[in-house]
Amino acid sequence: MELILVNLIDGLVYGLLLFMLSAGLTLIFSMMGVLNFAHASFYMLGAYFAYQISTYMGFWMGLLIAPVVVGIAGAGVERYGLRRVHQYGHVPELIFTFGLALLIEEFVQFIWGNSQLPYNEPAILDFALFSIGSNDIAAYKVFMIFVSIGIFLALLYVLTRTRVGMVIQAALSYPRTVENLGHNVPLVFMGVFGVGTGLAGLAGVIAGPQLGTFPGMAILLGSIVFVTIVIGGLGSLWGALVASLLIGWMTTFAASSSFQFADILLALGMEKPAEMSESALRDLWTLTLPQIGPILPYMLMVLVLVVRPYGLFGKRDA
């Protein structure tokens, strides 16, 4: 019981982190039609920039400055790269971001090398806030929850209560009309791209100390973010939130369960083979749920797409 409560909290932390990444991506995707493959690379840039800043000015300045720098870099990429490629169609755009992801990874290795970076939690948050059973809940995790929720509320407010948000929502559905009304749609695009990548950068800043800061961190998280927004439904902020939390809890509970597939096989009336190495199903007999935890989201995505191609909350085709 205690473990379930702990898992709920951990899943929430991971899910909200995913949300910070997927919120920006889903906005960018639905507005510009760009599958931004470099999104996770901006997340990585966030962590690296923050590490660099934190060595001079401490963690908190890194938290403030790094996302802004990443956002500006993102806006620059939109302005000078993506906008140029946009005229060729969506596939070249995607390949552009693909190549960009490669370049960013190489850039990071060029500057900071290939090793793990000692980017750690600030000392002020490096303690156990409370314990459930014998499991400590680190103060930093609670801090992550608050930051993510704060970002979500801010996004929701901007998108639904402000003029800029209205323009963005309108530009999502009817870019031409919005342009004819005299709004500068390219500027909106650039802004959305900048804010989206900035959010990814922020996620990197706060996740770096928890999940590790190393050149593979972008690839590790890259495709799962797509899975999230596709399951949630493209363009839907609520969908991104629900899917993020779903995936967060799903992977967390899968990892902490001790379910064995042998139980299913036994329930099906099969006999456990005496000589395991001779059985063609030997891998199934020893398989446990934690072993396949990280690929569950992909299964879910394929299922969702086959049954409901517009995702859980989407209104139009992916």
């Binding site: 473990l3 991971y14 999940l211």
Partner: peptide
């Protein structure tokens, strides 16, 4: 991505 659930176990 996140090893926390394993640690909890």
């Amino acid at each position: 991505k996140d090893f926390t659930p394993y640690a909890r176990k």
